[in-house]
Simulated scan of single mutants.
Amino acid sequence: MAGGGGQAAVSFLTKLAKVAAGVGVTASAVSTSLYTVDGGQRAVIFDRFQGVLPTVVSEGTHFLIPWLQKPSIFDIRTRPHSFSSNSGTKDLQMVSLTLRVLARPDVDRLPEIFTSLGLDYDEKVLPSIGNEVLKAVVAQFNADQLLTDRPHVSALVREALVRRAAEFNIVLDDVAITHLAYGHDFALAVEKKQVAQQEAERSKFVVAKAEQERRAAVVRAEGESESARLISEATAIAGNGLIELRRIEAAKEIAAMLARSPNVSYIPSGENGQMLLGLNAAR
């Protein structure tokens, strides 16, 4: 009786183990047959017999055939990328530029991107075409034009870079030049040029001042000449009376100044003579 009960228990445990194994295998098969695509992502399926499937899988949980198919997840959100380039200008000056772009893949072309470039498509493409476009655009301008025509330069870089990125199925939402620096020699040349311009402006001011002084001297000379002419004409008409009148007026002014001075005294000297004596008040 005890032997029969033991065999029944063993049989039950065996059946339970088989059921558990089946459930485990089934759960494992189900887990390997499911994959999840998160928000902001898309999936491309590689099939061992058909290759990369042309269908792009959107967000959600999806089924696949284990071992036969494998998903590759792409991040389709816009991501920033920055890279620098040393480029030569039209006048043979070296300029250092930093370019920032916001890039994302063309969702409808993800199978082509995966086939030709792989998941790291942006790192493979953007630095190379960015340097290519920067060098081509910068070579069209002189060094000083890069500052004065910066909006135009940025527009040309954006247009050319968007066109080149589209050849690789990459969409650029924004392109901007964030940094521009010249070499030491050019910066020194610019500083010397500014100093020379300031000196030239100063020289222009000195020349203009001298010209104004010359004109003022001419005007004064003309005025003195006219005054002398008028005095000469008046003398010719009235004789020496005008000169005597001027002398008397000057003598009156001198006498008035001396009369107001406390250091000058008038002392008569004889019947017709006069004497002015200067006295120092401090003594």
Rank of each mutant, 00 (worst) to 15 (best):
V162Q: 14
V157H: 00
T89K: 00
V133H: 01
A200C: 07
A234W: 03
E167K: 14
D120V: 05
A217I: 10
D108S: 14
S128R: 14
E233S: 10
A181G: 03
A200K: 08
E199H: 12
N169E: 07
L126K: 01
P151S: 07
E201A: 13
T115H: 13
A200E: 11
Q140Y: 14
L180N: 03
T98Q: 11
Q145K: 02
V153D: 00
V219F: 05
R202S: 07
L172C: 13
L99C: 15
V162K: 11
N131S: 13
D173W: 01
A160F: 09
T115N: 12
R109T: 12
R150A: 05
L188K: 11
K192I: 08
M94N: 10
V190N: 02
R109V: 04
L102C: 12
S154R: 04
L188W: 06
L230Y: 06
D174A: 13
D122Q: 15
L146C: 00
D91K: 01
D106H: 04
A160I: 07
E132A: 09
K209T: 09
E222Q: 14
E211H: 04
A234D: 04
N131L: 09
A196F: 05
D108A: 15
L188A: 13
D91N: 06
L110E: 03
V95S: 06
K192H: 08
D149C: 01
T98M: 14
E191D: 08
E132H: 08
G183Y: 02
R215H: 12
L156N: 02
F186Y: 13
Y182C: 07
A221G: 13
V219H: 07
P151H: 04
E191T: 10
K192W: 07
A189W: 04
N169H: 13
Q198N: 10
I177N: 00
T178A: 04
A187I: 03
R150C: 01
P151R: 07
S96N: 12
I113D: 03
E213F: 12
E201V: 02
D108Y: 07
V195Q: 11
Q194V: 13
L97E: 10
K192R: 12
A208Q: 15
V138P: 04
F186S: 03
V207I: 14
R158C: 10
R215Y: 13
T89D: 01
K193W: 03
A143C: 08
A187Y: 01
A196H: 08
R202N: 09
I113W: 01
R104S: 15
I129P: 03
V219E: 08
E226W: 08
I177C: 01
S225V: 05
P127K: 12
A143K: 00
S232Q: 07
L134G: 06
T98W: 06
A200Q: 10
V175G: 03
D106P: 02
V125S: 03
A221Y: 11
